[in-house]
């Protein structure tokens, strides 16, 4: 090697040392090591070290933005435990992690995309809404489902039309997530979609739609009352349950009618709903019914309800 070349190399080395580049490299290494080892503990995979999981997670959250680049490297994990840990940590770090995580949405690794979508739902930053909407039409139904979920958690109604359209998705997992999201958005425009959801052929969609109607609350009463006379079980039973939970007194008379229904399950759920509302007319009717009812399930519901009232 010529002297001139050697001189240039030495000069470059001095420049790196002077500029603190070498120091910052080792600092970065240290930080990475720290994040890695805290993350192993935070995942709480081993019984022996489980008491260290929560403190490790808190430390990572406290590190905040500093930890983000190293935590992002872990988004490709295949471990369910690690995925949940990342979702919790990023959710707690919050907004400062939003943009870097959005940057990972278009990863070539489908699992990384899915995890980034889920994390954005926990961060709840409105900047993620537009990027997430893009994923509602992806071929992988899990991606569509996670996008619905996260948009629901963010709760920004600008995504309403896109999310509500997923109530027609061919996969029940997506329809369920869309139903949950519509409830989180608490937008009355969601009612017709959710009422239809009560008749879905998969129970997860039916149950989620019922819960979401409760989130929207009073405006849902009228369409639910309509279902009392225009639907069959299990949709009818969900409508009865929802009316009970909404506790609107004007629903008492139609529910009283259901106490006389031929179907034992309908009578049982009407008992439960009337007891939930707590109106005296309902309670009296239930007490009267106790004397004549013979079906074991209805009887158990009557006893439960009267026990509660006493």
């Amino acid at each position: 090697m010529s002297r001139a070349k050697l001189f240039i190399i030495c000069l470059f080395g001095v420049f790196l040392a002077e500029s603190g580049y070498c120091g910052s490299l080792s600092e970065k290494d240290d930080l990475k090591k720290k994040v890695d080892s805290l993350f192993v503990l935070a995942c709480g995979g081993l019984e022996k070290y489980r008491d260290q999981a929560q403190p490790a997670e808190s430390m990572l959250v406290e590190m905040g933005e500093k930890a983000v680049p190293y935590l992002l490297e872990k988004l490709t994990t295949q471990s369910a435990r690690e995925k949940w840990t990342l979702i919790r940590i990023f959710g707690k770090i919050g907004e400062s992690a939003a943009i870097p995580v959005i940057g990972r949405l278009d990863s070539e690794d489908k699992d990384e995309t899915k995890l980034a979508i889920r994390i954005l739902g926990e961060i709840k930053d409105n900047r993620a809404v537009e990027p997430l909407i893009r994923f509602l039409n992806k071929e992988d139904y899990n991606i569509r489902s996670h996008a619905c979920e996260s948009l629901g958690k963010i709760g920004d109604t600008t995504a309403f039309n896109d999310v509500s359209s997923r109530m027609e998705d061919s996969v029940e997992v997506v329809r369920k997530s869309a139903a949950v999201a519509l409830g989180n958005m608490k937008d009355v425009r969601g009612i017709p979609f959710l009422v239809r959801g009560l008749s879905d052929h998969h129970f997860s969609v039916r149950m989620s739609s019922a819960n979401s109607l409760l989130e929207i609350s009073e405006p849902a009463v009228k369409p639910l009352l309509f279902l009392l006379d225009h639907s069959a079980p299990p949709t009818l039973h969900l409508a009865i349950e929802s009316l009970g939970r909404l506790k609107d007194k004007k629903t008492v008379p139609p529910l009283l009618e259901k106490l006389k229904d031929e179907d034992w399950a309908t009578r049982a759920f009407a008992v439960e709903a009337l007891a939930e509302i707590g109106d005296q007319r309902g309670i009296l009717a239930i007490k009267k019914m106790k004397k004549v009812e013979t079906h074991p399930f209805v009887m158990s519901k009557i006893d439960q309800c009267l026990e509660k009232k006493d």
Binding site: V173, P234, E241, A265, F297
Partner: peptide
């Protein structure tokens, strides 16, 4: 069927998918 009616379900609800992953 009766048990499932008690929880507002039907026997047709007792299915899983084979493509969750």
């Amino acid at each position: 069927t009766d048990a499932l009616r008690c929880i507002k379900m039907t026997p047709g609800d007792l299915v899983f998918r084979d493509d969750y992953v």
